[in-house]
Structures are given as C-alpha cells and as structure tokens.
Simulated assay, not measured.
Amino acid sequence: MTARTDILCIGSVLWDVIGRSASHMRQGSDVPGRITRLPGGVAMNIAMTLVRFGMTPVLLTAIGRDAEGDELVRACLQLGMDAGHVYRSEDLPTDRYMAVEGANGLIAAIADAHSLEAAGAKILRPLQDGRLGSAASPYDGLVALDGNLTQSLLEEIAASPAFARADLRVAPASPGKAERLRPFLQHARATLYVNLEEAGLLCQTEFDGSDSAARGLIERGALRALVTDGGRNATEASAERVISRTPPEVLVTRVTGAGDTFMAAHIAAEAEGTDREAALDRALHAAATYVSGETPL
C-alpha cells in the first residue's frame, strides 16, 4: 500500500436540501420554516462526524465537474477531509438529497444519487491501482460503506480481494435500500449499523425492539450488528455478547443524519480503543446531541 489513512468513507457525498418546520406536518401541509443547503449524503455525514472526533477520512465517491461539484469539493477540504481520490465526472451532475422535516419527524425525502450509481466501480480505482491499495497489498484499515451504491457494486465489494483485509462498517442509506446489504449479512469482516425497520427488512420479519433485532441478525450470520430504535434502547450484538443501552432523552429538532452520526461516533470511539459498552454509550450520546441541534462532541 502506498498510503496510510484513518478511514475510508465510501458512498454518497452530495448536497442536502432540508426544509424544517417547528410545526407538526402531514401530507399537504404548507407551513413556515427554514430551508438549508449543506454538504450531506451518508458517507459525507459519517466523515463530518469523524473529523469532529479527530479522524481524517478519505472520501471515495463521485462528484460532478459542475459548479455545485466544485463547491462541494471545496467544502470537503475546508472541513478537513481528503478529497484527492474522489472520482470527478465530466458528464454526470453532482447528486442531491431533499427532505422535509416537521416537529413529528421526517415527513418525506428524495435521494437523487443517480450519478454515484452511474459511476459504479470507478470510485474504487484508488483501492486497485496502488494509491490506497492493490491486489498484492489490499487496504487493511477501517472502511465506512453506505448503501447508496448499486446492488451489483455492493455484491462486488463483498467478494472483492481489495476489501479482504478491511474492517468494514456498513450501513444502508435508508430502509428502502436496506436489502442491498444482504451480501454483508454473512460477511466475515463486516459490522452492520441499522435501525429497527432496516433490521426487519434484512431478516424478512418484524422485531419488537433492538435486542431481538440484533440477535436476529447474528442468528442469520452477521459478524456484529448495531441496531438503533429512535429514543428506545439500542443494541450491539455479536456471537459472544449482547449489550443494550438507552439513549439520553432530548428535545428532537432534526433527524436527517442522526444514524450516520451514531455510526461515526461509534467507529471513532473504537478506533481510540474504547471498550464496547463505552463505545455504544458515546455513540448514543453523540446522536442524541445531534438531534437536539447541538454539535455532537
């Protein structure tokens, strides 16, 4: 390997356009609020939290060579990430995500990650050409991987020699993409980060809580699983041990990115050598602080 890095963040890096209102909303609601545009995407959200915990993430993603893409790359660099291995496409636009949130949570969202999907395996070239790894010397560090990639590319990653030594941390981009993670359900080096609904979709059943969901994933072959359930208990499980913790009670002011913050904080804690109980506590505290509207540190 020709480079050493703290962690690779592979997946969606795009612009988040989020409309938030303090009012309860339903279909057809027209209410006052605020609309923001910020760097986002699962891989980006994870990377931003990792930076706040002192890590230097390397982004592997697709960003267009358009004005929005140039602005996004500058934002990544200013935030302290390594964007030197990003695939920049001449003919694909920079991806976007749009969501509407009310006092009663996420109302609706649309993820336009078509450019990432179209770029496909091109985003992984640095892991094969010697910049970050090669067939002779595969990358052997941490990898945060998100489910915005296509099913075929995720299957390729699960079987690829380029990831044979990596510590894979995998999360779906949304419940609608949870089943894309099936190739990692019996993977020897993958830790799954899912919510209760996503765990049920992966196991093709319904669970009544994070404890049963995490156990269910382990029974179906997962190496390790972390399952969150909003303000209720979160569980981290492996074949050896099951740990559950209750998140702090906070006033929820935002929800988009909470799961990504949880995952990143947990990865950062374990990278520092924190034990399993403390790592889960730290991740839950970071996520609770994030949804309350504060900075998760």
Rank of each mutant, 00 (worst) to 15 (best):
A213K: 00
A225M: 00
T228C: 14
P161I: 08
L181C: 10
L168V: 11
R180E: 03
A239Y: 04
A190V: 10
P175R: 07
A173S: 14
E219H: 12
R241D: 14
S210E: 04
H187K: 02
S174R: 06
S212V: 13
D208E: 07
R241V: 07
G176I: 02
D211A: 14
E198N: 10
F163Y: 07
K177F: 04
S210T: 00
E198M: 02
V242W: 08
L223Y: 10
G176Y: 02
R220A: 07
T228I: 08
L226R: 03
A234W: 12
A188Y: 15
G216M: 05
F184D: 00
P161G: 00
L201Y: 03
R215E: 10
G209V: 01
T191I: 06
L201P: 10
G176D: 04
E240H: 08
E240D: 14
A237C: 05
F163G: 09
A190R: 01
A159M: 11
L185A: 10
R241F: 08
L217V: 10
V227L: 04
L226H: 02
T191Q: 09
I218F: 13
E219M: 08
A158Q: 09
E236K: 00
R189Y: 03
V227C: 05
R220K: 09
Y193S: 07
A190N: 08
V227M: 05
G200W: 06
N195C: 02
P172G: 05
E198L: 05
R165T: 09
L223E: 03
L202G: 00
L168C: 09
D167Q: 15
V242I: 10
L202C: 04
G176P: 01
A213I: 00
N195M: 05
T191K: 05
S238R: 04
P175A: 03
A214R: 12
R165W: 13
A225S: 10
Q186I: 04
F163M: 01
L226C: 15
G176M: 08
E156Y: 10
G176Q: 07
E156T: 15
N233H: 14
A162W: 15
F207E: 11
Q204T: 13
A173K: 00
R220S: 01
A188F: 15
D208K: 03
G221H: 05
A234Q: 03
T228N: 08
I218V: 12
D167G: 12
C203L: 12
A171M: 09
A239T: 15
E156D: 14
E240N: 08
A188M: 08
E197T: 15
A239C: 11
R165G: 13
A234G: 06
L201W: 00
C203N: 06
A225I: 04
Q204N: 12
R180Y: 15
A164H: 13
G231L: 09
G209N: 07
G216Q: 01
I157A: 04
D167I: 10
R180M: 09
T235W: 02
G231E: 08
C203R: 06
A199M: 08
A213S: 03
A166C: 14
A239N: 06
R241N: 10
L168D: 07
A158I: 13
L185S: 11
L196T: 01
E198F: 13
R220N: 00
